[in-house]
Design a protein around this nucleic acid. Structure first.
Length: 566
RNA sequence: GUCCCCGUAGCUCAGUGGACAGAGCAACCGCCUUCUAAGCGGUAGGUCGAAGGUUCGAACCCUUCCGGGGACGCCA
């Protein structure tokens, strides 16, 4: 990120800018050498030290500069630290830094000022809804496509991970200052749908289920619900029964899928059918575009995209020798269709079994003149579902699957969301359903929710005692218990920034857990409601209220409820 | 055979260039006359799959190997 473009919305960001000023000042005064022509720009990195005695923030700047400057790291660190201290003394309101230390082998350790911390807390109390939303240096319009299961049956627990990961990613990107469209892509007219239609028709008319039909209970239910009018149309002489019944069944299944997603708290902005890419001409135009660029050739009667020109290990068929388009053809059309709606970035959330198709889609995007970096695939590792130690294979066709609705009835949305959000999307997971049910009550999500509920209880009782939170914490922030909690609270937007940059949610769950821990420690050490000390009580209520807003907003980023009582 | 992901505490997983490697659960010992004990404090537990290499510094980057999963279609 270009530092000059970074919005100054976090204490960390403000500290980085202070360090940049100090470095420039040290260079100007001659205590540090000037960068040589052509040197890469100096990127100031700041991190949170593992040990509290190393301060609130630390930078490795001097270590990084030792080689290009040919100076001892400690010498550089002292020069920068001297400028930081000078500014902190001369203009305390212009910097978040209260004090500076230099530690071997060359770290510069910073301590944040109580005024800076309290200023952030006052901002939270003044405008809690916006807390944790940050401005992006370069806001983008992003299309996130996920779930995208075809309407051949209910969503299964196999679809759960993609649904949660995609939804949380969208929430994170929005909080990170981007604009997001959630999109669901499906095919309601292919061979699979014909099979579904044939299955439902067969059941309803008392014939055996076709060989490649669907055997789940839900097809029985669909057959029973099939309206007489559709049945009559399908049974008419010469009618294409699989297509007619399939069209109806796909619609009914989709309605059920939408209901399941609603239950999850996942709402899509766009439902896009594969068929519409053809009727609207997107596929045809995309192929023409590739052809015009010379990226297409015909061999063995099929039309191929020259994917090898972009590093793929083989070329890819767009149109079969029968003239029928491949799935890849739809992908290409869809890319142009999405970009035509003005998106600057396309994110696909795919199962890791799709990794083979990543290269060809990005290659085709590049060949059509788009930036391949704007087409990003997030591959999610498969969840291995285990029941009593034995893997459960999921098959809609065989009817051996557990639906998403069943999972949520057993485990609950909040616990399931936390489970998936706290794990890296590329890590394979063994999901033992019995274990998950058993462990539901010990899911860390309740630890975080409990902190929120405890604060709600304190605020209720304070109100009954006639105590309201102050507008800011003020000098009470100097207390040891208060300081530790405040330092956790103010990190929230930095966590959102990092999660946005990494396009991952684990940081949010980790932060929420640490914040809950900090609150529980505060609860132990500092009594909030003390009618004989009204000023201190009001200050502590302000701090606790800020913690509650932070917990609530962090949970909201994960799509998890923040209960007032438990 | 080629490509991708993973391998960290008994279990489930964080941490992906910085200062002695973390959390939750499980185990053990303590704490409710105190704003919610779904909580708090403490103890124990690790050759970060293995070996080389790069670096002032590696769980993290590179190479090789071992183990697990996935992909290599004119399927979707």
């Amino acid at each position: 990120m270009d530092p000059s473009q970074r919005p100054d919305t976090t204490l960390r960001g403000a500290a980085i800018q202070a360090i940049e000023r100090a470095l420039a000042a040290a260079t100007r005064s001659g205590s540090l050498p000037s960068p040589a022509e052509g040197d890469p720009p100096i990127l100031v990195e700041v991190q949170r030290p593992a040990k509290p005695e190393h301060g609130d923030l630390a930078t490795n700047l001097a270590l990084k500069l030792a080689r290009p400057y040919r100076r001892a790291p400690l010498e550089i660190a002292r020069a920068v630290a001297a400028e930081l201290s000078r500014e902190a003394a001369a203009n305390p309101s212009g910097t978040p830094i209260a004090s500076v230390d230099v530690a071997p082998p060359g770290f510069i350790n910073l301590r944040l000022s109580e005024d800076a911390l309290d200023g952030v807390l006052a901002g939270i109390l003044a405008e809690p809804a916006g807390w944790g939303r940050v401005a992006a240096a370069h806001p983008r319009r992003i299309n996130v496509e996920f779930v995208s299961a075809n309407p051949t049956g209910p969503l299964t627990i196999g679809n759960a991970r993609g649904a949660f990961v995609g939804d949380v990613l969208c929430r994170v990107l929005e909080a990170g200052g981007h604009s997001v469209a959630r999109e669901y892509y499906f095919n309601d007219s292919g061979a699979q749908i014909r099979n579904l239609g044939a299955t439902v028709f067969a059941i309803r008319t008392g014939r055996p289920i076709p060989e490649d039909g669907y055997h789940g209970d839900y097809t029985q239910a669909l057959a029973a619900e099939l309206p007489e009018s559709v049945l009559g149309e399908a049974a008419a002489p010469g009618a294409d029964a699989p297509a007619i019944v399939g069209r109806w069944a796909a619609g009914a299944v989709r309605t059920g899928i939408e209901a399941s997603l609603d239950h999850l708290g996942v709402h899509f902005d766009v439902w896009k059918s594969e068929g519409s890419l053809y009727t609207e001409g997107w596929v045809e135009r995309a192929i023409e575009r590739l052809r015009a660029g010379g990226h297409v050739y015909v061999e063995d009667g099929a039309t191929w995209f020259r994917s090898t020109a972009y590093g793929d290990d083989k070329d890819r068929v767009i149109l079969r020798s029968t003239g029928e388009p491949t799935y890849f053809a739809s992908d290409i059309g869809y890319v142009t269709e999405k970009f035509s709606r003005g998106f600057e970035e396309l994110i696909y959330i795919w199962g890791s079994d799709h990794h083979g198709t990543v290269a060809r889609v990005r290659n085709a995007a590049e060949a059509m003149g788009y930036d391949r970096e704007a087409v990003r695939m997030l591959l999610i590792a498969w969840v291995r579902f285990v029941l009593e130690g034995v893997e459960v294979s999921m098959s809609k066709r065989a009817g051996t699957f557990i639906t998403l609705d069943q999972l949520l009835d057993e485990v609950g949305v909040d616990a399931a969301r936390w489970f998936f959000a706290s794990r890296g999307p590329t890590s394979g997971i063994d999901f033992d359903i019995e274990l998950a049910k058993k462990q539901t009550s010990e899911n860390p999500v309740y630890y975080v929710q409990y902190a929120h509920a405890r604060i709600a209880s304190i605020l209720r009782r304070a109100g009954e005692a006639g105590l309201e939170p102050a507008a800011s914490v003020g000098s009470a922030i100097g207390g040891p218990a208060e300081g530790l909690l405040a330092r956790q609270i103010v990190r929230f937007p930095e966590v959102v920034e990092d999660a946005t940059a990494l396009e991952e949610a684990q940081g949010i769950t980790a932060f929420a857990t640490e914040l809950a821990t900090a609150f529980h420690a505060f609860y132990r050490d500092a009594k909030v409601i003390e009618p004989s000390e009204p000023d201190r009580s009001r200050a502590r209520l302000a701090l606790v209220a800020a913690a509650q807003h932070t917990l609530a907003n962090a949970l909201a980023l994960l799509g998890i409820s923040a209960p007032e009582s438990m």
